[in-house]
Design a protein around this nucleic acid. Structure first.
Lengths: 145, 145
DNA sequence: CCTCAGTTTTGAATGAATCAAAATAAGCGC
DNA sequence: GCGCTTATTTTGATTCATTCAAAACTGAGG
């Protein structure tokens, strides 16, 4: 009888109109523990609790969660897609250009105007996305490798 | 005797310390004609002039040009890598979330401060990248398909 | 014009992600 | 609680963009 009991993850799934399955519940838990994990990392984490889970199931879960807005997908250049729980929304990401590590960055200061482009080539603008690039603490500390 | 004559592309390559080969010259020309082209599109354009060129050669050319800063590589989520000639640097990109088309956008207004994050999770910041998302004129005109 | 390192060709391999059919199970109504 | 229906997962194969590697070639300095 898998997960007859209630849980925050179960409620979250149900309120989004999704069935509360074990892989989905464990995927949400994995993302709590591993922010910015990619599909493989989520799979590894879920597998340790549900050994019969397939990687394809994880892809399916992640895309269902992304479609319903429970999870956000980020795709930095040169990195596989990464996922994070949607927690409010005022933050961007900083990516280590050496090792690919990702950090959260609070919304830039003084910027409501910043993200308004001056021209849009005829496009209808819906969102602006900011990605910062730099070095994570570890890579900055080991510049000579 | 391929390209003994001088040309803007040849000079550009030589001044970057690269050998002026036909595939490189034609790749630069292809990017003048096709801004934001991906490797396949560059290959198609170059092939029409140099039928013996291989796709792998194009990948090699693009990575040499990118490494020397002659060309900039952009990688919007869900799109293969795209390339553009480095022309000054005050612009960002707007991507059509429906068809993937890309447009240039002049630097956002009033923004020197905008791209300064308030916290950086311990990362050393080097650059900030802005990507706008929206609908291109064509996709905005055909919302019912 | 010759030589050699930088390039390209040719052919194969990788990694991330998607597709599809069959098997399974969540949660509705009874 | 019990089936039924449909959403979800499993299983297995496939696509696409990109990279790797060895051999053949060629630009350009001497």
């Amino acid at each position: 009888m898998p997960h007859t009991e209630t849980s925050p993850e179960r409620d979250l799934l149900r309120s989004a109109g999704l069935r509360a399955t074990d892989p989905r519940i464990e995927t949400l838990r994995a993302l709590e523990t591993h922010p910015h994990a990619d599909a493989q990392e989520v799979f590894d984490a879920v597998s340790s609790v549900l050994p019969d889970t397939s990687l394809q199931a994880i892809y399916g879960v992640l895309s269902a969660l992304t479609d319903t807005g429970l999870v956000r997908r980020i795709e930095p250049a040169g990195s596989p897609a990464r996922y994070e729980l949607r927690v409010g929304d005022n933050h961007h990401h900083i990516v280590c250009s050496k090792c690919g590590a990702i950090g959260d960055v609070d919304c830039a200061v003084g910027h409501a105007p910043c993200l308004t482009p001056s021209t849009t080539s005829g496009f209808t603008l819906t969102t602006a996305e900011v990605t910062y690039w730099g070095l994570c603490p570890d890579c900055a500390a080991a510049p000579l490798t």
